[in-house]
């Protein structure tokens, strides 16, 4: 009786300590992230921007392609609700920036997703296969790494014509290199771990090993890198649009709006509005990325 009681209390003590210690790595990371003010501010601002980009164009009274002939190059004014002014063709700046933001964010998400798929597949296969295949695949990455890849995107747009879809794909297809390197490094490390060995001993096939056991453990570093890739991709699309090779009129993106504003320095709001939007977007994304890195990878702190 006393014996069982003792074991029982011991057990409950054990359980208690388990309950204290047993905070998962993810739980831990989430706490760290929630405590990071810059990252949380980034989330809030980005959330607002996403809502504006999705719903703004439906709610706003002006359409992005409508030209008001009697309101050309109008400075910001309350009249007719052109609160951020109009461009040289009399189109409402708020509406244009909202559409530009929508395109930029979409490019960011889609192209990053493309790069994620290619990079993770490439890196996981190289790291898991090892040996000659690994050497060959990573050598290829090294060779492509040294290339001026944004110029290849330009080459693609020059040769195959300009379509947003192609730009999504092309940017995604060049941004996967770092992802592949990160994933390969992690895979190399993970495949030595006991749980992989155990799974192998239990008869799991190589594909199953990669998909079920290695990929889920890559989630942390991959998530960090994805959030850091989105602003890079947005920048690249804006760069293309800025030099006139991105989306075409009357559709627009932040880069294109900045490019138009830059030609009209006499009407500075045409430059300020998209530039400030761009900077806010990039800042919030960078803060989120940094916050996630600090939260998920405490080694660096």
């Amino acid at each position: 009786m006393t014996l069982t009681a003792a074991t029982h209390s011991e057990k409950s003590a054990l359980m208690e300590s388990a309950a204290v210690k047993g905070r998962s790595l993810w739980e831990d990371s989430r706490r760290r992230l929630l405590a990071n003010k810059a990252a949380m501010a980034g989330f809030v601002v980005l959330g607002l921007l996403v809502i504006i980009a999705i719903f703004g164009p439906f709610v706003w009274p002006h359409k992005f392609a409508t030209q008001y002939r009697d309101a050309l190059s109008l400075p910001p004014t309350w009249k007719d609700l052109h609160i951020l002014g109009t461009d040289i063709y009399g189109r409402d700046m708020v509406a244009r920036v909202m559409v530009g933001l929508r395109i930029s964010l979409t490019v960011g998400v889609v192209a990053t997703f493309v790069s994620l798929v290619i990079g993770v597949a490439w890196g996981a296969i190289a790291g898991f296969a090892g040996g000659r295949i690994d050497q060959l695949m990573m050598r290829t990455v090294d060779v492509i790494y040294a290339m001026p890849y944004i110029f290849f995107v330009i080459l693609v747009t020059v040769v195959f014509g300009r379509s947003i879809f192609l730009i999504f794909l092309a940017i995604g297809a060049i941004e996967w290199l770092t992802m592949a390197r990160i994933v390969r490094g992690q895979t190399l490390m993970l495949k030595q771990k006991e749980f992989v060995e155990a799974a192998r001993a239990a008869g799991v096939r190589p594909i199953g090993l990669v998909v079920r056991h290695i990929l889920p453990n890559l989630l942390g570093p991959v998530a960090v890198y994805v959030t850091l890739t989105i602003p890079v991709v947005i920048l690249q699309e804006s760069f293309l649009s800025f030099i006139g090779l991105g989306v075409q009129e009357p559709l627009t993106s932040l880069g294109r709006l900045i490019s138009e504003g830059q030609r009209e320095l006499g009407h500075p709001w045409m430059l300020f509005v998209p530039a400030v939007t761009m900077v806010i977007t990039l800042f919030s994304l960078n803060f989120i990325g940094d916050g996630l890195r600090d939260a998920l990878d405490p080694k660096d702190r």
């Binding site: 320095l265 006499g266 500075p268 990039l282 960078n286």
Partner: peptide, 22 residues
Amino acid sequence: AMIGISIPTFVTGPLLSLVFGV
């Protein structure tokens, strides 16, 4: 430095040109 990294050339360029040039 954080600002320099976050703001792309195609934003700083026109802004500098506007402020110090125009």
